[in-house]
């Protein structure tokens, strides 16, 4: 896929919304690219941040920092190394984890009122554009149910290893080993699926 060709702005400066690689546009200083970044990934960043930080005032500041960090890092995005969503969520997770360490606050269980009006569009937008999501979903599905639960608690819900040990009442060492093995397995399966997917794409011209 040549993302550069796909995302050429038209003569009037507008860009077709389908399959937009926002980071390319940001790197090219396209007007309104920050707003497009928020439109496409704002909810994802917000959701990740909410998981890590919970507290609304910290969350607002951190989300703003993360979005600006993504905007500033757009030039480093290399589609041959990672998909756009991986790049965005990787920066977001790393920044939120660092932020969490900085404020040394524990994750809050407080619920927050959400505006869910755009969720459907948001989900569609990401699903349509990111085959990597489907590949990694299939890799997750290949794990045992117990391992999926561990991964869910650790990666998605953001519980620390020692918290998971308490929740599931299993030794900390076992939690560490199983999460490490699951991530290794996920990494390997995803890499294999990715190669197969690329081969299929090449064969289909």
């Amino acid at each position: 896929m040549n993302s550069n060709l796909k995302n050429q702005p038209s003569k009037d400066g507008s860009v077709a919304k389908k399959d937009i690689v926002i980071l390319d546009l940001i790197a090219k200083d396209h007007p309104g690219s920050f707003e497009m970044l928020i439109e496409k990934y704002g909810n994802l960043v917000w959701s990740i941040g909410k998981k890590f930080l919970g507290n609304q005032s910290d969350l607002e500041d951190a989300v703003q920092e993360v979005l600006i960090a993504i905007w500033k890092s757009a030039g480093k995005f290399d589609p041959s190394k990672a998909s756009e969503i991986t790049f965005v969520s990787m920066i977001a997770r790393r920044r939120f984890i660092d932020y969490l360490r900085k404020i040394t606050k524990h994750k809050s269980e407080d619920s927050m009122d959400d505006d869910n009006n755009n969720i459907h569009l948001y989900k569609e937008s990401l699903l349509n554009q990111e085959t990597d999501l489907a590949l990694v979903k299939s890799a997750i599905d290949e794990l045992d149910e117990d391992d999926q639960e561990l991964l869910n608690l650790s990666v998605y819900q953001g519980y620390s290893h020692s918290e998971i040990s308490d929740i599931l009442n299993i030794p900390l060492g076992t939690v560490k080993t199983r999460i490490r093995r699951n991530l290794m397995k996920l990494k390997d399966t995803f890499a294999t699926n990715k190669i197969q997917s690329n081969v299929i794409q090449l064969n289909n011209g």
């Binding site: 990740i48 969503i85 969520s89 997770r93 990111e130 999501l133 997750i140 869910n152 998605y156």
Partner: peptide
């Protein structure tokens, strides 16, 4: 990527 997948 796993995180994003679970969200989406």
């Amino acid at each position: 990527l796993a995180d994003s997948t679970m969200f989406v």
